[in-house]
Design a protein around this nucleic acid. Structure first.
Lengths: 191, 191, 191, 191
DNA sequence: GATGAATGAGGGTTCATTCAT
DNA sequence: GATGAATGAACCCTCATTCAT
């Protein structure tokens, strides 16, 4: 529990960025949250922007970390897609605040820094695309555009950060299960 | 093309907010874009925030406007859901910049003003939920949680603002058609 | 009742200057009050400052106008002093708003314009000094510094703009009578 | 002489407010006076208005502080009134600039803040009224309206800020002595 | 005479960052 | 490591005044 100071600061920043947005959060706000003077923060961070970069880097890396393993599992595309959905859901639901900052505020980084995140996000998408591609090739999945299909599923799963409530009636796992059904079998009763 | 000045300002603001975000866009930036002095802008707007409110209000109202008609059409839920998806796609693709500001920056409004938008968005979601509900009741759609199903579809369709490219290989209509298939029939080949 | 437009504007300005002060009153405020557009005001006034100058000029001239006559009356200093007090009271109570602007805001004029008012006020004071001087010379009044005595009486009478209430229990005339007694005979019971 | 920075700023503000008025004095002016950047001022003050409030609060409290003691002295009303006049004179003459800001600019505060000052000024007046009241009851002072009598004396003494010159021929104490005579015995030679 | 768009300077305030202590 | 004073640029907004219509 005894995080080092940097992590404590990052956590405070995530919390505030999530609530008010990056620009509406002042360095003073963060300092207040960790009970430090504004100036003292700069012993730990090099700049406010670099702090944001760290946060969203960690976040996107968190998403990517496990997924590559899932993609390469010796299982059916269907099975792997389900696992990918559960994995993604787990992270979003496990840290909605951080996910919000990643998905909403990362673009506020300067071009160069933003590029780093965009590339990482593209790589993350690629993993999804590969699952779809392989499923289509194997005949498990309907023919179609694997990238669009991946964007459809990922879009639905990303959007979760906007409405997910950890105290809601359904658990994250239950919701993820339902999402698997929806995206795999569709909403319409099969013929 | 001859917009009135307010619309010209709003358009410039949408453009800049989309590119840099609300807070990173200064009133000076907007003024420059419409070739006015900073102070002169205030003949047309009452404040920067009120301008944002106008923009996102118009946007969400644009989404809602037609949908109610679609929901009440005397057609199958399947048909209405397809129309809703095409309608939503049409707006997002027709004005990605405005949609971006709505979906990403509206929360930057002060609490009271943000509430107005949240309420309108909730009402928009309700229309989708009703289609799903009626489809489930009629037996067209698989049993399930209509709100979660609506959030899944709407999430996928909203996310479009993040990746849609008007100069891409596929037209918005083609993509929308594919999304209909994905969400209605799922990705998996039916047994 | 049908004032010309300039007087209507001046009256509105007096009202607003009195309530909010010269600088806190915008030209827009004045225009609103007389139901004109801001730009239209400038058909009647040359500048906001010149409007203030007019107001305070009229005010101080109103004070001075009659007083010279009173000073030169062939009556005792006592009688003339009483008349001066009543005269002064009449103007202050008759137009507290205008008096307030004169006594509180005139100094906001630019140096040159302020000088005009200061000179006029000095001349007004001189009339009071003359009455005191003549009363001392004639033996009616106690020996002393006529200027300080005049400033004492005038100060008390000027201050009235800060507390006078036209709807109060006592009329302006009654108060003026009491002030005459206070300044002429003092507060202490004579031996 | 080594004031802390806040007092230095307050003193500069008093000086400038006195000379140009509250609104005509910019925060930049104050910053220049204390040789700080405009933004640096805000380490010491929370707002320009709050600075004004502090100044006038201190001022009116300065007036009130000693007076209560004087009112409760076991001496004749005459004696206490003389002391009150000297006390008031001492403060006005001792800091004409601050007194000017109090008596002329306090009303520029927002309603709520102005109210605080008005209440404090009313309490100050009440002390004067009590002296007058007790003098009238004891038969020292002529029967009359004690509040009007207090306003007459206080008005004369307040007005001093408009004309008092520390380099004048008469000292503040001499003037105060003369004012005591004028207000206690009146200007007219006793019968 | 009246309008209202436009100006351009200046208003008070916030802020990320630096640095001597 | 921590402080808090100081910076200086940028922020949103207001305003008295002008002028073409």
């Amino acid at each position: 529990m005894a995080l080092n100071k940097y992590d404590e600061i990052a956590r405070a920043a995530i919390h505030l960025f999530n609530r008010k947005g990056y620009h509406a959060t002042s360095v003073q706000d963060i300092a207040d949250e960790v009970k430090l003077q504004k100036g003292s923060l700069y012993h730990y961070i090099t700049s406010k922007e670099e702090l944001l970069l760290q946060i969203v880097s960690r976040s996107i890396n968190g998403f990517s970390h496990e997924l590559e393993g899932i993609v390469n599992l010796p299982e059916s595309a269907t099975e792997r897609l389900k696992k990918a959905i559960h994995h993604h859901f787990g992270i979003v639901a496990g840290d909605v605040e951080m996910t919000t900052v990643l998905l909403r505020d990362a673009f506020l980084l300067s071009q160069d820094q933003h590029k780093i995140i965009v590339v990482a996000m593209d790589r993350y998408l690629d993993h999804w695309v590969r699952i779809l591609q392989e499923g289509m090739k194997s005949g498990e999945f309907r023919e179609g555009d694997p990238r669009l299909a991946a964007l459809s599923i990922l879009g639905a799963c990303n959007w979760v950060y906007r409405w997910y409530n950890p105290n809601g009636a359904k658990s994250a796992k239950e919701i993820a299960d339902y999402f698997c059904e929806l995206h795999l079998r569709g909403i319409v009763v099969g013929e």
